[in-house]
Design a protein around this nucleic acid. Structure first.
Lengths: 361, 361
DNA sequence: TGTTGGCACTCTTTATTTCCGAGTGCTAAT
DNA sequence: ATTAGCACTCGGAAATAAAGAGTGCCAACA
C-alpha cells in the first residue's frame, strides 16, 4: 500500500527535522517549515496515520514524532534528496586523497581515518583479499648466518623477513633453497603447504638445520595474513559528538564494540560487490550492539582483485544523505586511484611506485 | 618540613581510599579502616593541617578530603607500597607477550594495545629511532618492466617496494644500479642523499628513464619514516570507565586529544633513558589537555639502539601502584625479548626469526 | 600538649511538589 | 477533506523540603 504524496512529504519533513534537531518534531513546526499548504491540524491527522502505519512513533503521548527504522528506511530508499557534494568538499577530499596516497599507500588505516574525519562519525575500513599465492621467492644472502626472505605475492604485494641463524649457512645452500622454493611453493594455496611437502623439500635440499622450516613457516604466515581480511577502526571518539550518546555507558558499549575489532560489523554477505552505497538502519544490523545505530557502507576497488569496504557508524538519526555522498565520492576516488588497470594511469611521473610493503593491523 | 609519621599514614589512607571509591573521604572512614589507634576527631585535626599544607583539599566545606597533585606526588614518591604483581598476573603478561612477539613483531601498536588491556586505561606507545642508515641494497629483477627494491637498514629492519615501470629495463641495468646504490647510498644519512648525488649516480648508470630517481626517493622515504618516531594510541574508550569522565564533553576532549596523535604526550625531555617508571601527575603535565589527568610512563629497550616508551593515561586518581607495576613488568619483558644482545637468546628454536618487515602507523 | 566526645552548622544530594507548556486528539464548523 | 478551537496529557524545569555526611570548634580529659 503506497503512501500518498503528501504523507511522503510529511515523513520526509519529519526525518529531516529530526536529523538536525534530534528532538521529536511536532505538527506545528512541519506546517510552518515544510511549505505544503495546509494547517497543523491536517498534519496531525496525517501524522497519526503515519504512526499507525509504523513509520513514526512518539516517545510519549503529547510529544512530537520520531522516525522509526521503517520510516528511515523509506526515507533512505525514496525520499531523501541524493546530496551532491559542494565543490569545496569534493576538492578537499581529492586533495587529502592525493596526499595520503602519495607517501604511504592504501593502508586501510588511512582510509578509515579519512572517512571518519570526513563524516565526523566513527569509521571502519576493511579489505577482503582473494586467495593469494606466492609468485616468487628470493633469498638474499647477507652474511654467513643471515639472509633475507623476499616473497612476491599474486596481488603484487611484497613481503620480507630478515632471518638470523644461530649457525652458518653458505651461499650455495641459500641458492639451492631459493630454487627449490620457487619450484615447489609458488602458485599454491596455504592449504597446499603440507608437512609432507615441507619434508620432501627439506630432504631435497639436504637441509639439516631447519632452514626449510623457517622459510615455509614464513610462507604460511604470509599467506594466511594476506588472505585474512584486515580491518581498522578510527574516530570512535566522535560518537561522543552525538547527543544520543551522551550517556557514557551507552557510548562505552558501542565504542568498545568498535575498537574490539567488531569484525561482525559489515563483514558478511555480498556487501563487497555492489557498487552502491548501502545503508543498514538500526535493527537491520545483525550485531546486537548496533541494533540502535546505523551503518553506511561503500565499497571500492582496491586493485589486484581486492575490494575494500568503508563503513561509517552513527545514530539512526544520522545524516544519511551527506554521509552517503561523501562515502560514495571517497570510494570512487579510491577505486580510481588504486583499482582497475594494471598499467599505472598516465601522468604519474614521480609515482611509478605502485605498491609497497604492508603490515596488517 | 617533614610530615609526621602519622600524617603520612593518614595521607596514604586518604589517597588509597579515594583511589578506589572516587569519593571524598571523611575522617570517620579513616579512623575505622586505617587502623591507627585514634579517633575521628584527631584525624580531623590532622586532616585540617594536611589541607593547610596543600596535600589535600576539600571540594566544599563539609565534604571529605581529596588529594591534591602535591598529595599524589608525595604518595607516589614515598608512601605507596610498590606493588608486586601476583603470579597469575605476571604469567598472563608473559603469555601475551610471547604470543604477540611470535607472530608479529614489536609493532608499537601491539605494545600499546597490550598496555591498555593490562591497565584498563588508554595507552600510548612510541619509539625513537636513532639515526638509521641503509646497509645494503638489493634489486630483484622480476620482469622486463618490474623489479623489487629491497633495503636492509642498520636497525636490521628490511623494507621493500615493488616498482613497475611504463617501459622496459634489462637485467644488466638493474644490476648496475644495485652496485651503484650499494656503493654510494649505503651508510649515509637522509641529509646526505642530495640531488647532486642522485644526479651523478644517474649519469654513471646511463639511466635516462628516471629509475635512479625512483630508487633514491624510496631510500629517502624509508630513511625519513624510520627515523621519525612513530606513535600509536589505543583503548581511548577505556576512559569512559572512569567516573571522572562521565561528562561526555570532558571525555571527548581528552579522547580526541589522544587519538589526534597527542605526540606532545610524553615526547619531550630525556624520558627515554631512565629505566624507572615515571609518573606525571595532573598539572605536572605540559599538555593543557592533560592538566587534570595523570600519565605513567615506562621505557624499554627495543633493540638496535632504539628505545620505546609506553605511557598510560588516566585520571589523577589512578591506581599508580598497580599501573606502575604492570608497566614495569611489561617494559622489562619487552626489553628482555627485543633488546640487548645481537645474538638470539638461547632456547629459541622455532623463533629463529628475529625481525620482520614493518610499517609505521 | 595531644586526644577525644559532643554538638551545632554547612552544604550537597536526593526526593517531593508544583508549575508550565508543547503537543496531542477530538469535535464541531467550514 | 480541511481547519480552528479546546480540553487534556505528560514530561521537564523550577521550587521547595528533607536527609545526611562531614566539618570545625569547644570543653573535658589524660
Amino acid at each position: 500500500m503506497a503512501l500518498s504524496e503528501r504523507k511522503k512529504r510529511i515523513l520526509a519533513a519529519v526525518v529531516d527535522a529530526y536529523i538536525d534537531t534530534a528532538e521529536p518534531v511536532g505538527s506545528k513546526a512541519i506546517a510552518e517549515n515544510a511549505g505544503l499548504g495546509c494547517s497543523s491540524a491536517t498534519i496531525r491527522n496525517e501524522l497519526a496515520e503515519l504512526v499507525a502505519m509504523g513509520y513514526l512513533e512518539q516517545p510519549h503521548t503529547s510529544a512530537g514524532r520520531v522516525p522509526t527504522a521503517k520510516g528511515y528506511r523509506l526515507y533512505v530508499n525514496e525520499l531523501m534528496d541524493k546530496q551532491k557534494l559542494s565543490i569545496e568538499e569534493s576538492e578537499d577530499i581529492n586533495r587529502r586523497l592525493n596526499q595520503k596516497l602519495q607517501e604511504l599507500d592504501d593502508t586501510i588505516s588511512d582510509v578509515s581515518r579519512l572517512a571518519s574525519q570526513l563524516t565526523n562519525y566513527p569509521a571502519m575500513a576493511l579489505t577482503t583479499r582473494e586467495a593469494v599465492t606466492i609468485v616468487r621467492f628470493d633469498l638474499i644472502y647477507v652474511a654467513a648466518n643471515t639472509f633475507i626472505i623476499v616473497v612476491l605475492l599474486s596481488d603484487h604485494t611484497v613481503r620480507n623477513k630478515l632471518v638470523r641463524l644461530p649457525i652458518s649457512v653458505d651461499e650455495k645452500m641459500i641458492r639451492k633453497l631459493a630454487t627449490l622454493f620457487n619450484a615447489n611453493f609458488t602458485h599454491i594455496g596455504e592449504e597446499a603447504i603440507t608437512p609432507v611437502l615441507i619434508g620432501s623439500t627439506e630432504r631435497s635440499a639436504d637441509d639439516t638445520m631447519g632452514i626449510t622450516a623457517v622459510i615455509s613457516s614464513f610462507a604460511l604466515e604470509v599467506l594466511s595474513s594476506s588472505s585474512a581480511p584486515a580491518a581498522f577502526v578510527s574516530g570512535e571518539n566522535r560518537l561522543l559528538n552525538q547527543p544520543e550518546f551522551r550517556d557514557p555507558d551507552k557510548a562505552h558499549r558501542l565504542m568498545s564494540y568498535l575498537s574490539g575489532g567488531g569484525q561482525l560489523l559489515p563483514a558478511e554477505s555480498g556487501l563487497f560487490d555492489s557498487s552502491e552505497v548501502r545503508v543498514l538502519i538500526g535493527p537491520e544490523n545483525v550485531a546486537e550492539e548496533l541494533k540502535d545505530s546505523s551503518v553506511v557502507i561503500a565499497s571500492y576497488d582496491a586493485g589486484d582483485n581486492t575490494r575494500g569496504l568503508i563503513g561509517v557508524v552513527g545514530p539512526t538519526r544520522m545524516d544519511y544523505s551527506a554521509v552517503a555522498a561523501k562515502l560514495r565520492f571517497l570510494a570512487d576516488g579510491l577505486s580510481r586511484r588504486l583499482g582497475g588497470g594494471e598499467a599505472p594511469p598516465a601522468g604519474m611521473h614521480n609515482k611509478l611506485i605502485i605498491k609497497g610493503d604492508r603490515n596488517d593491523e
